[in-house]
Every structure is written in structure tokens, then in C-alpha cells.
């Protein structure tokens, strides 16, 4: 199994995760979607120096991971490629913002370091919440929920096809990479001189396949409506989850939980 096939396998595992039957999985996709959006907005809204205020926001995803039966390590494993990019956000803050903000013993910690950590954590928390949504909701149900929330059909179709085409593109990449290595034994990776044509070919081949795949959807009655998605009516438990989760997130956002907990131990 080459790297690309492994990637495909991992993509399919996301579908397996989404098909499980925990209480979180069984919730209406719109409830989970709106709750996730609320979480992301509230997480992002923290001030860049409010590191201690931000920390309790971790409770939300951790609790939901427990309830959905999805191990947190699966999240970090699946996101291992994106996480470093998120972590890189704010990497330059310590160079631009050098004013000391707090003193840890003899070490003065600058505002840049704090804002860098805050940005990193915001990114990680938002990724965890997004992962949780994807891992507990099949993509088609998610798209159906978006349509029910009156998101334009074109945008929703784009989202669905992007998800589907990641697999198509990865398959093409796997075939092309194998073909390249069979004719370039001993080479590590793909030579820089071949990058242009390789990417061009990949794009063209993926487009061809994507067009055929879309045609196959159209020929079987797909028209921006997700009748086939297994989505049931919005019920009371969905409303309770949505209201309850947003309430908890608001409390975590506006009540200084960390400070209150700290005051129990430090006078």
C-alpha cells in the first residue's frame, strides 16, 4: 500500500466513523452544524492575550469526544498534516510583540509568546470541533442540513464534490506516482523538473474523472437536493442539544472559569 492508498484508506475511515451510532451521531446534522459554528465563533472571539480564558474552551470538544466514542488521538492522528500548519500561525508574533506581559519566576514572557500560544490553541480547538462534526455526521447528511438551512445549492454541491474529489484526485495521484517511480527507480520523490507536467496531468486527469463522476450523479437523479441523505425531522433532543451546547459554550466564553477554579486554590 503506497502513501496515497493509505490516504484513501484514511478518508474511508472518516466515513466509517461518521456511520457509528453514538448519541452524538444520532443528533440532527443541523444541530451539530450550528453548535460547531457557535463554538468556532466563540473560540475565535477570545482576545489574543486571553490564554487562560481560552483554555476552558477545550472542555467542549473533549466532552463531545467522550460522548461520541471517538478517541481524541484519532483526531490528532488524522489531522497530523494540518496541525503543523495551524501551529505555524502566529509563529512570528514573538518577534514583533516583545513587550513583557507576565513574569514566570525569573523569566519574562512577552505578549508575542502569549498571542502565539493563543492563536495556536484557537486553531487546534477549532480543528478539533470541525473534525468532531465530520466524524459524527456523514457528508451527505451534512450537505442536506446545509440545504435545509437555505445555503445555496451550488455552494453545497461544491462542498460535496470537493469531498468526493479529494478521493478521486488521491487515486489519480497514486496511479501517477506509481507510474513515475516504476520508470525512475532509486529516485526519492518526484524531480522538480517534472513537477509542472505532473501537476498539469494530475489536474486534467482529475477533471476528466470528476466530470464523469458528476455526470453519473446527474444521471441518477441528483439535482442539488439531498433526498438520499438519511436525515430525519428536527426533534426536541436536537433542540436541547443545540441550546444546551451553545449555553455551555457561552458560559465558557464569558464566565472566567479558569480564574474561578484558580481562586479555589490560590488566595
Amino acid at each position: 500500500m503506497n502513501k496515497m492508498e493509505k490516504a484513501l484508506h484514511e478518508l474511508a475511515e472518516m466515513d466509517d466513523l461518521a456511520a457509528q451510532g453514538s448519541p452524538i451521531h444520532r443528533l440532527h446534522p443541523a444541530a451539530k452544524l450550528l453548535s460547531t459554528i457557535a463554538y468556532i465563533i466563540l473560540t475565535v472571539s477570545f482576545h489574543k492575550y486571553d490564554l487562560t480564558g481560552l483554555m476552558p474552551m477545550l472542555l467542549g470538544p473533549v466532552l463531545l469526544f467522550q460522548l461520541s466514542g471517538i478517541p481524541v488521538r484519532t483526531c490528532f492522528y488524522k489531522l497530523r498534516i494540518v496541525l503543523p500548519l495551524v501551529m505555524a500561525v502566529g509563529l512570528f508574533n514573538p518577534f514583533f510583540d516583545r513587550a513583557p506581559l507576565l513574569q514566570l519566576g525569573t523569566v519574562a514572557v512577552s505578549g508575542g509568546v502569549i498571542s502565539m500560544l493563543t492563536l495556536m490553541l484557537k486553531g487546534v480547538f477549532c480543528l478539533m470541533a470541525s473534525f468532531l462534526l465530520m466524524a459524527t455526521t456523514p457528508i451527505d447528511s451534512l450537505c442536506a442540513a446545509l440545504r435545509k438551512l437555505h445555503v445555496p445549492g451550488l455552494l453545497v454541491t461544491l462542498l460535496l464534490l470537493t469531498y468526493r474529489y479529494v478521493g478521486v484526485m488521491t487515486e489519480e495521484l497514486a496511479v501517477m506516482t506509481d507510474a513515475y517511480h516504476l520508470r525512475a527507480p532509486g529516485q526519492k520523490g518526484i524531480q522538480v523538473s517534472a513537477w509542472g507536467s505532473f501537476l498539469g496531468q494530475l489536474l486534467l486527469r482529475s477533471m476528466d474523472r470528476a466530470q464523469e463522476l458528476y455526470a453519473s450523479m446527474l444521471l441518477r437523479g441528483y439535482h442539488d437536493h439531498f433526498h438520499y441523505a438519511d436525515i430525519r425531522p428536527f426533534r426536541l433532543p436536537d433542540g436541547l442539544y443545540l441550546g444546551g451546547s451553545i449555553l455551555v459554550f457561552l458560559l465558557l466564553r464569558f464566565v472566567p472559569v479558569a480564574a474561578l477554579l484558580g481562586s479555589l486554590f490560590v488566595r
Binding site: 456511520a19 456523514p138 474523472r209 464523469e212 463522476l213 453519473s216
Partner: peptide
């Protein structure tokens, strides 16, 4: 379709 991979797009 000739290529079943393009026909079978659901999980």
C-alpha cells in the same frame, strides 16, 4: 459507465 470507479461514488 465504462469505469465503475466513476460510477460508485458513495462510501
Amino acid at each position: 459507465l465504462q469505469n465503475s470507479d466513476n460510477q460508485m461514488f458513495m462510501p
